[in-house]
Structures are given as structure tokens and as C-alpha cells.
């Protein structure tokens, strides 16, 4: 049942047009952060307002929407965002990665490979990959304009000098289509390789920071590294205690107060399907 007091997918048409134009420019310049006049949404900044605005401007009434947070459909904020679109856009929803046409995500890329018929919308807290090296927007804008990414190389190299490896485990910076360095949102670096040459359209929304960016399908997305310290998509060296998967990203769960712990799939849809199918 759509809430009649609001327009389809909540946003007014002027706002959707503005967001749609930003999405298209983002696709035309992969990895470049397009400024957009983010609106105040009825949920707090930092809780997915960018992703929600991108999804709202993208949804068709016949879409099937999946919302996940930390890989799970049942995390509270995923539930809240899914309810928002059920209420304002009357779209069908699903927990199945394969059954969804639009997937909004926070912090994960589903384990099930995406297809050409899908759009993946990422919620982004800090879109600027250089932000923690250079807090000023005026300066980072210049860095991107000149593709002057030496600062990032220096930081990664300092990590190696200090720790013996690049000490970034999530929001690991990538280079898109050979030009822009981009923040992939706080996904674990385990997920980074899934972004490259992906058949689906990948859209990124940062509401508070007023930026939208995009990775078109089949675009090269390279995690920054060095020849002598190549990028490794690491995860916990365990198998899922529920479905037995040895190659999905795992959550660590504390099971007692005596150091007991177990590892289970972060992607609950993937895990449940494997468990049901008797894959374990």
C-alpha cells in the first residue's frame, strides 16, 4: 500500500530529475564523484540517505528490491529501509540476491554473482578516498583533477614500511577505468574484486557528503597495490559453521565467555540457500 501523501518513491519529481542527471554523469565519468543537492530524508544522514535517494530515483514500480546491511537482510537498518520503499513505492521485495532487480547495500557485495539485469546501489559514508589524508574538499578536488594520487601511494607504502603489509582492511581504495581513484564504500577488501568487470550497474550514493558516483558494467576496477606487495582479498581462514562454505566472507560470532567463537557467512541469503541445498 503506497502512502498517498507522498510521491512515488517519496522524492518529488524535480529532485528525482536532479539525481537522475547526476547518476548519468557519474556513469559517463566512471569513479568521479558528482556533486548533487542531497535532500533531507526522513532518516538520519549516515544511515543510508545517499543510497536511498539513488534507489528512489532509480526504482520502477515493477522492480523487486533487496536491501542488505552487513550482508544480512534482517539487520535493523536494512529492515527500516526496505519498509520505507514498501510504503512509498509499493515495490516487491525479496531476500534473494538472484531474484532482485535493484539491490541496496551497506558494507557488502553479495556472494552470488550479479547479472546484467541488476543494479547494485551502495550506501556511502565518506565518498572521498583521500579524505583521511587530506580533509579539505578544495584540495582533494584538485588532486582528482590532476590525477595526482601520489599521496595515496605514499600512505600505502608507509603501511608496508611499518606493518609489512597495506594495513587497510575495508574501504580499500580502487582505481576505476584507469583514471579516478574511488572509495568503494566500507566493504571488506575481500569484496573488491567483485566490483571489477561486473555485469551489473553499480551506483554509489553519499547523502550527507552530497556525492553520487558510478561504475558502469564491465569496467576495470583495480585495488591499489605494489608489484612487490600485491593486493590480497583476505577473509577469516575458516569455513562457515552453518553451510560449510570456504570461500564466502565470514562473521565471527562469540559463543560463550570462555573464548568460544564460530564463523558464519556474512551473506545470510547465500548461506541459507547453501544450507537448504544440502551443500554443507
Amino acid at each position: 500500500m503506497t502512502d498517498q501523501a507522498y510521491n512515488f518513491a517519496y522524492l518529488d519529481e524535480d529532485t528525482k530529475r536532479m539525481i537522475r542527471r547526476a547518476i548519468l554523469k557519474g556513469l559517463a565519468v566512471p569513479g568521479y564523484q558528482v556533486p548533487f543537492a542531497s535532500r533531507e530524508m526522513p532518516m538520519p544522514y549516515g544511515w543510508g540517505t545517499g543510497g536511498v535517494q539513488v534507489t528512489a530515483a532509480t526504482l520502477r514500480p515493477d522492480d523487486v528490491l533487496k536491501v542488505l546491511d552487513q550482508g544480512a537482510d534482517d539487520t535493523t537498518n536494512a529492515v527500516s529501509i526496505r519498509k520505507f520503499f514498501q510504503r512509498t513505492a509499493s515495490v516487491a521485495t525479496t531476500e534473494s540476491t538472484g531474484g532482485a532487480t535493484v539491490i541496496q547495500t551497506r558494507h557488502r557485495i553479495p556472494e552470488t554473482p550479479l547479472t546484467e539485469d541488476q543494479i547494485l546501489v551502495y550506501q556511502v559514508p565518506i565518498p572521498e578516498p583521500m579524505r583521511f589524508l587530506e580533509p579539505r574538499e578544495t584540495e582533494t578536488r584538485r588532486i582528482h583533477a590532476l590525477a595526482d594520487y601520489g599521496l595515496m601511494q605514499v600512505r600505502l607504502y608507509e603501511d608496508i614500511a611499518r606493518h609489512g603489509e597495506i594495513a587497510t582492511s575495508y574501504a580499500y581504495p580502487v582505481e576505476v577505468a584507469g583514471r579516478y581513484v574511488m572509495d568503494p564504500s566500507p566493504i571488506p577488501k575481500f569484496d573488491n574484486p567483485k566490483m571489477s568487470d561486473c555485469p551489473a550497474i553499480q551506483l554509489f550514493g553519499a547523502g550527507r557528503e552530497q556525492r553520487i558516483y558510478a561504475v558502469p558494467p564491465y569496467t576495470q576496477v583495480v585495488s591499489l597495490d605494489f608489484d612487490d606487495h600485491p593486493f590480497v582479498a583476505s577473509k577469516a581462514e575458516h569455513e562457515c559453521a552453518i553451510c560449510g562454505s570456504g570461500d564466502s566472507y565470514l562473521d565471527e560470532v562469540i559463543t560463550d565467555d570462555a573464548g568460544g567463537r564460530m564463523f558464519v557467512c556474512s551473506d545470510t541469503d547465500y548461506c541459507a540457500r547453501r544450507a537448504e541445498g544440502g551443500a554443507a
Partner: peptide
């Protein structure tokens, strides 16, 4: 019906831009 028709048309525009 601007909200619905523009949503449907935009997806075609999005698709051709992305591909």
C-alpha cells in the same frame, strides 16, 4: 502519470548510458 512514466523511461536511459 509523471512519477511512474518517468521512472520507467529513466531506466531505459540509464541502461543505454551504462551500456
Amino acid at each position: 502519470d509523471p512519477a511512474i512514466e518517468s521512472a520507467i523511461a529513466f531506466r531505459a536511459i540509464l541502461k543505454v548510458t551504462a551500456r
